[in-house]
Design a protein around this nucleic acid. Structure first.
Length: 520
RNA sequence: CCCCCGGUCGUAUAGCCCGGUCAAGUAUGCGGGCCUCUCGAGCCCGUGACCCGGGUUCAAAUCCCGGCCGGGGCACCA
């Protein structure tokens, strides 16, 4: 059942051609034209990955695996796009945190680049493109000021430097590099089409000045003041790195048009671009801006960041993969419910999680009626895997009575005369219902008798149970369930282990008495 | 206002390019049953969709036009 690449299973590859898996991804356009299918994931290291930003990482990597599975050469490149130290200031820790996220997802990259290390390359290409007459500089005190340039986009009339000899613009560009201009005083602009129906496409900015004394770049400090814009650095890098296919979100579709002018000026072949729609997960906030604005650490268990999810536990990377592959690469928006994610996750967790009994908001149950022998229950760790063993709970009578606890939810459902099966123990009949106790008597012992009267089977906890607390993260909030009691064996469960509290849900143990609710 | 891109069961997706095999498949959800000492898992059955209107055609979910609705873009952000 491996739609899941090598991450968890070691050497498990893309061998299984299952419906809805990697192999079912539609072929990439013109795939046969390229010798090495080269894909990339290019995050801005200003935050960690979340469920939304993980999508392009997974999809692109999935295509690499798909083509390798087809016996074709394929490459996956990781590239950090950190060319804005001012408004999208990179977070120094984010570079490594993102790599950690990718590893968790089982993604391996063949090459890694950081754009702030490649500034000289961008300068070099900038000069080449100016030299070819494909770009010009708008600068103060010239015949084409930044304002003139802006105006030219509206009027459609080119400003002077646009048609000037490349040497003029080359000189101006050098002055930019030398620090002659301050922020806003000069920009290098790509010649596109001043009549283009989309104004944003008309002669767009490729290089601008950022005062890195004021806004030092976390990696290269104040070394550079001329910075490429997204479309410029991306075009250059995609070409230089041999990217053949770009799968990215729909918001980038105009960028493909903008970038086409660079490729035309340089005589390069443009990669194939495929855009997919937005992914919404109901009950989860996937806006990077909103998440950042919360001001809590990115790996907080309330967050839908991969780090948060990882920390919170429970949600397995395979489940995220399956969801992403199911949603695929359609250009339409997709709204999936967390129930979908949980359903995928349950498939993965269910066989792994051992079963235990716990009761939330415990209510005391006293079994009266002259019980002289101790009662024992033998509970399998997992009903589907008896080989995992059992544990035994023994109840000793005191004054011919035995006390146990059940959850208030179950207590609420019964009244005098009700017969209940205590899981793997005995069947009891309610005699009287007090405020906080249930007085019952032994009805019978075997399952059959319970079945005969259609008695509900419920979980219970002995008096020496372990007090527990369960918190459930729910869309940026943490809801704390009322206190509970778990059977003593839960004390032996290791931290970080995912177990199932029967008839309650899957939980992850995070402390000797603390649990995080995963899902039902 | 303008410029792109879309609209198939509640949700997600297949089919659309190359019209008939689609009274539309799958998954999840929901309802019911079986099984099981969990409200988990498994098995079975059921529910449920081609945005609207024209056109082309013997035939349209599939092609064309219009409308409506949704998303994205319109930064010296990425």
């Amino acid at each position: 059942m491996s739609r899941w690449p090598e991450a968890l299973g070691g050497e498990r590859k893309v061998e299984s051609y299952r419906k809805g898996g990697i192999e079912d991804l539609p072929p990439l356009p013109n795939d046969s034209k390229y010798e090495v299918i080269t894909l990339r994931f290019a995050p801005n290291p200003d935050f960690v990955l979340h469920l939304g930003s993980a999508r392009p990482a997974i999809i692109n990597y999935a295509y690499k695996l798909k083509y390798e599975g087809l016996g074709k050469r394929a490459k996956f490149i990781l590239r950090f796009e950190d060319t804005d130290p001012r408004t999208k200031r990179p977070l120094p820790e984010a570079y490594d945190a993102i790599k950690e996220d990718l590893r968790w997802l089982g993604i391996k990259w063949d090459e890694e680049y950081v754009q702030s290390d490649r500034m000289e390359i961008y300068y070099d290409i900038a000069k080449k493109i100016i030299g070819k007459g494909g770009a010009y500089v708008a600068a103060e005190n010239t015949e084409c000021t930044p304002d003139d340039w802006k105006r030219s986009k509206v009027t459609g009339k080119p400003c002077r430097n646009r048609d000037a000899d490349p040497s003029v613009n080359l000189e101006l560009f050098d002055k930019m590099l030398e620090g002659y201009y301050k922020e806003g005083e000069a920009v290098m602009v790509i010649k596109t089409d001043l009549q283009h129906p989309d104004p944003s496409v008309r002669d767009w900015v490729a290089m601008r000045i950022i005062d890195t004394n004021k806004y030092p770049h976390p990696r290269v400090g104040s070394k550079y003041i001329v910075w490429p814009t997204y479309n410029f650095s991306v075009s250059i890098d995609d070409h230089l790195m041999g990217i053949t296919h770009i799968l990215r979100a729909q918001e980038h579709s105009v960028n493909t048009v903008k970038q086409s002018f660079i490729y035309a000026h340089m005589g390069w072949e443009q990669p194939e671009a495929i855009h997919f729609g937005r992914l919404k997960i109901v009950g989860m906030t996937l806006s990077k801006t909103k998440l950042k604005a919360l001001g809590i650490k990115w790996d907080d268990i309330r967050l839908p960041t991969l780090a948060g999810l990882r920390n919170r536990g429970g949600i397995q990377p395979e489940a995220i993969w399956n969801i992403m592959l199911q949603v695929g690469v359609k250009p339409t928006d997709a709204t999936i419910s967390s129930a979908n994610l949980f359903a995928e996750n349950r498939k993965i967790i269910e066989p792994r999680a051992n079963r235990y009994m716990a009761v939330i908001d415990p209510v005391k149950v006293v079994i009266e009626g002259g019980i002289t022998e101790e009662l024992t229950a033998k509970l399998p760790m997992h009903p589907s895997f008896p080989e995992r063993g059992f544990r035994v709970i023994t109840l000793k009578p005191v004054d011919n009575k035995v006390t146990i606890f059940i959850s208030r939810a179950d207590y609420d459902k019964v009244g005098p005369g009700s017969v209940i099966r205590l899981m793997e123990l005995v069947n009891i009949e309610v005699m009287s219902k007090g405020e906080d106790t249930l007085t019952v008597r032994m009805h019978s012992k075997d399952l059959e008798s319970a079945r005969k009267v259609n008695a509900p089977i419920i979980q219970w906890v002995p008096p020496d149970g372990l007090p527990i607390r369960v918190v459930r993260p729910e869309d940026l909030k943490l809801i704390e369930d009322v206190g509970g009691l778990a059977e003593p064996a839960v004390g032996q469960v290791a931290n970080d282990e995912i177990i199932q509290f029967m008839r309650y849900g899957f939980v992850k143990k995070v402390g000797h008495d603390r649990f995080i609710y995963v899902h039902d």
